[in-house]
Design a binder for these strands. Structure first.
Lengths: 90, 90, 90, 90
DNA sequence: CACTGGAAAATGCCGC
DNA sequence: GCGGCATTTTCCAGTG
């Protein structure tokens, strides 16, 4: 067994090809993640608050439906807990 | 450039630029994730068991990571013992 | 060496005691984390949206100063990006 | 307020109960974290190097985790190969 | 006291 | 559709 021309080795080659393609893509993806971190770092270096920036990015990434859904549920939950208004200045 | 004359928008352009760069990279990253999914799907279509494939990918990744991990643990120990540098003629 | 009554073994005992106390506390802490997860699961089982619940918990956990600070920065950033109003129905 | 008979508040009480349980547990957890800090401080006061102590704690934790980790990795393999149960007389 | 790194939490994904 | 797993993100403690 393990002869070059039998069916096992053929699938083996194919499998290896798939695995390596995946690994390559994963590396690329990780590199991009690093880039994103760098951009945030750069923004921070320019005086921006990255925490707030992340919220903004998330907001923009949500589509309208999602956003409304979450907002209205939040309102309902807040109301149920009596957290409705800004008037809780003890 | 970036006419600062309006105090509100002092860093608005810059902020926008950062945000858009981030969004662009996130899109790229998402695209790659999709590619990875496609590869798995393709492999599945060729009769491979994706579950096993994922294990293999993970294992190879850990093997590679483990080497570095060991190194860095050594570094921690050295640091804790004040042996940071190769020359310990303090 | 390693005689019971020399200074080394005394510190050794003391060190062991410290370490074990720490480990005990860490376990307790982990157990509580698990409990929290369970509560969320239970809430989910009762039809609540845990994602929204987590936002609520976070909001309540923030003190007023923090909350106002974050909110006002968000407004500033949104304004800088022209995300001010709900009137972006393209 | 928060009268049971108001349909809006149907689950308000329940929600409040969940939230408060969570907040309570979070406080307990934070208290334990403080305790851990205190123990380190105490050890430091007794002449121990907390940096080294942390390494030891981490190491012991990893050793323990590693046993379980290996077990669970085995489980994954078994599952992937359809060997889930101890009796494979299918 | 800001930064970095590592732990913990949250989100999304896959398989059942 | 749900539960569990993997990844990603967030947070926090330690460090310089």
């Amino acid at each position: 067994m393990t002869f070059p021309s039998n069916s096992d080795s053929v699938s083996g080659e194919q499998l290896r090809a798939f695995i390596e393609r995946i690994e390559r893509m994963q590396e690329e993806r990780a590199a991009i993640s690093d880039d994103i971190k760098e951009i945030y770092a750069e923004a921070k270096g320019n005086g921006f608050d990255t925490k707030v920036m992340r919220i903004i990015v998330k907001e923009r990434g949500m589509d309208r439906a999602e956003r409304l859904e979450t907002e209205s549920l939040l309102d309902i939950y807040r109301a149920a807990l009596g957290m409705s208004g800004p008037i809780d200045d003890e």
